[in-house]
Structure formats: structure tokens, C-alpha cells
Design a binder for these strands. Structure first.
Lengths: 199, 199
DNA sequence: GCTTAAATTCAACACATGATGAGTTCATCT
DNA sequence: AGATGAACTCATCATGTGTTGAATTTAAGC
């Protein structure tokens, strides 16, 4: 009867170290929910069941946590080939479907949301997103589809905007419309941007 | 040599009261830049050259300042008729032009940005935006153009997404492309959404 | 089994935040 | 001219923030 859940004193915990990953998981969740500035180190630590100082010990400072948590947003290197495998006249349709598939899964949506939310209010996060999105997404997609960058970005704008209304602001009816309806509605617009050949 | 710019003691200032407006102006600027949570009452007061308590005196609390600062985002009642005056087959083009005109002017962009930035990280701000955008924008536009709401919202998503990439994240090249190029690029997509007749 | 290194917490710092109540100066109304 | 109220500042509170250094416990290497 002595084994009450004591508040656990200092010192290393028994067993293999799993706290680092726990911290990263909480960080992703909270950054996704509140953005960079809104998610506090202390809240992350609390959610991970850990002292705030431990977060520091592992990642140095808040920015370190953010950078570590953001590694692996979507892995475009693996996603692009899948999309490009579709027949050229169905590219738009395929892209909308892929986007919806990712966004409708909370776990895969989280890092993207975190990036977007943070970039909206934090200049450094905006810089990170700018660089990632330019080099890792737009440049590759443009090259793969042989389409000018402005076109790729217009298409991306369309997708981001709709996801924002659907999953962040949650305006009706677009928040509840079935996925297939969005595919037939938006797909052709995307297709149009990708049909224009390079100048 | 006695008239040094003293740090100004307590008590009402001479002349008519202009501080209220000054506070609102600073509030709009800062909410636009940092969003609801990022803009602090103290920073707003500092920018307006005023004691933080005065902000409280006028608006009660932080939310009061936000609500007061957000009155008049775009005045859709005056904007819609202008847009709808265009010939039906040029609606898309006209909308893109109108949007670009508003967003390229920092003063008119500010309240929209404030709303958007705040809605990204603050649930109450998101609720406000949801309501405003649903009743004041989408419902009217849908009725005026006799188009289903999902179509209106898809068009809005396209516009918001592009503005986001252009003016918030500032990704190149879409951040620097001349307005007319965007009009011919995106206009047809918008037009498509508005061409579908109501179900 | 001893030693070194890593994991973990505690206590504290310096600072920023939103809020409040009391006090002072001016404008306005009679 | 005097009274009332509005505009305005000061000092202060309680709370939350990111960060740091020291102390303690466990795991790994020899």
C-alpha cells in the first residue's frame, strides 16, 4: 500500500529513454494547434509529462524544438512520383484527392498546420516555410510537370485556401461537403493551371 | 529652456480627444502584423503613445479592443454591387482585380490580415471570422450571383490562398508577378466557379 | 563494481502580459 | 465660476513566459 503515484523526484527514469519522442509528439500537436508563439515550452512539457528544463536539455531552446518537430512535413520526394504517375489529363483530380487524403488525417495534417499557423504570425517560421515550400515543393513540382512556377503556385494557393476554409476556419458548407464533390468541383481548376505549358 | 519634452504626467490632455482613434489605429496595425494573441495591449498602447490603462479605460478589455478595431473590414454592402455591375462573363476577372486592388493597399489589407492571422491561432477570432464571412460575404455573394455556396467558397479559397502566398508568406515568383498576369491566370478559375448555376 | 555520462527534476531568474484601483488634470454643463 | 464627469497616468498584482545552474538518479563502458 506504499506505492502511491508519487510526483516523481529528480534523476533519470528506469528503462530505455522514450521521453525525447514524447516531447516531439506533444510539440507537434501543440504547434499545430496554436502556432509557434502560441505553444509554450511549458505546455509542451506538461503534455509530455516532463519538466520544462528537460525540453531545454534536449533541444537547446524553443526554436530547436520547433525545427526538430517540423522535420518530415510530407516527404515530397515520395509523394510527387505517386501523383505524377496519374495520366496527364487527370492530374488535377489526382492532386485534389491526394491533398484531401492528407488533410483529412489529423496526424498528417498536424505538421502542415503547425507550419502554416506559425508562419502566419512569426517571421522566422515564415522564412522556414518559404524556403521549404520553394525548394522542396514548388521547384520539384514545376520541373516534374514542366509548368511555370506561377501556375504551380496558383494551384497550390487554390488548394491551401480551400483547406484553410474547410479545416481551420470551418465555414459551412465547405467544411462538410463530401470529398468527391470537392474533387469534381476543384479538380478542373487545378488541371487548368497544369495544362499551360512552360513559356 | 524649461520646456523639455517631459514624460507627461497624469491628467487629461488639452485639446479635443484624439487618443481613442490613435489607439484603434495602432491596434489595427498590430493585430494585422501579429494576430490577436501576438499583439499585446502594452505594445498597442506604446505605439499609440499612451498608458496601457487608458486602453482598458476605453475598451474594457483586450477583446473589446479587437472588436472595436475590426469594425469595417471591407464593407461588402458597398463592394458587391460594384463587382456585380460587371458583365456576367467577366465576373471572374473583375473579382480578381478587385481583390488585388484591396490587398495591394496596406491600409485596406490590414483589417483582413488581422482577422485572418488572428483566426489562425485563436478560436474566438476564428468564430468571429466564420460568422462575418458566412453571413456578410458568402451568403450575399451566393444570392447575388445565384450560385451554390460551395462554389462561392471554392472561389474565395482560391483568392485567399493566392493572397496568402503573395502577401504573407511572400514566395517567389508569385509575390512579385504583375497584377495583370494574375488576373489572366486566375480569373478563368473564378469564372468557372461562378458559371455553374444553382442546383 | 567503479566510473563516467546521460536523463531528469527543482528552484530560481528576469521579464512580459492582462488587469485593477486610486489619483490627477482638463472639458463641459449649468 | 463651480460642479460633474471624462480623459489620462502611476503603481501594483497575479500569472505565464523562456532560460539557466545545480542536484539527483539511472544507464553504459570498462
Amino acid at each position: 500500500m506504499t506505492g502511491a503515484v508519487r510526483s516523481r523526484g529528480p534523476g533519470r527514469r528506469p528503462g530505455p529513454t522514450e521521453t525525447r519522442e514524447a516531447i516531439l509528439a506533444s510539440a507537434r500537436e501543440l504547434f499545430a494547434e496554436k502556432g509557434y508563439d502560441g505553444a509554450s515550452l511549458r505546455a509542451i512539457a506538461r503534455e509530455a509529462g516532463v519538466d520544462p528544463a528537460l525540453v531545454h536539455h534536449f533541444f537547446g531552446n524553443k526554436e530547436g524544438v520547433f525545427i526538430a518537430a517540423m522535420r518530415f512535413p510530407v516527404d515530397p520526394g515520395r509523394l510527387l512520383p505517386v501523383i505524377m504517375a496519374a495520366p496527364r489529363e487527370r492530374l488535377g483530380e489526382t492532386m485534389v484527392r491526394t491533398f484531401l487524403e492528407i488533410w483529412s488525417d489529423a496526424d498528417r495534417r498536424a505538421p502542415i498546420l503547425a507550419m502554416l499557423r506559425s508562419a502566419m504570425t512569426n517571421e522566422r517560421a515564415a522564412a522556414m516555410m518559404r524556403e521549404f515550400v520553394s525548394s522542396a515543393l514548388f521547384a520539384r513540382a514545376g520541373a516534374a510537370a514542366d509548368v511555370p512556377l506561377v501556375n504551380v503556385q496558383s494551384a497550390a494557393g487554390q488548394l491551401i485556401g480551400v483547406m484553410l476554409l474547410r479545416y481551420v476556419i470551418r465555414v459551412e458548407p465547405i467544411a462538410s461537403v463530401p470529398e468527391e464533390e470537392l474533387v469534381t468541383l476543384i479538380g478542373p481548376s487545378i488541371q487548368r493551371y497544369l495544362d499551360h505549358s512552360a513559356p
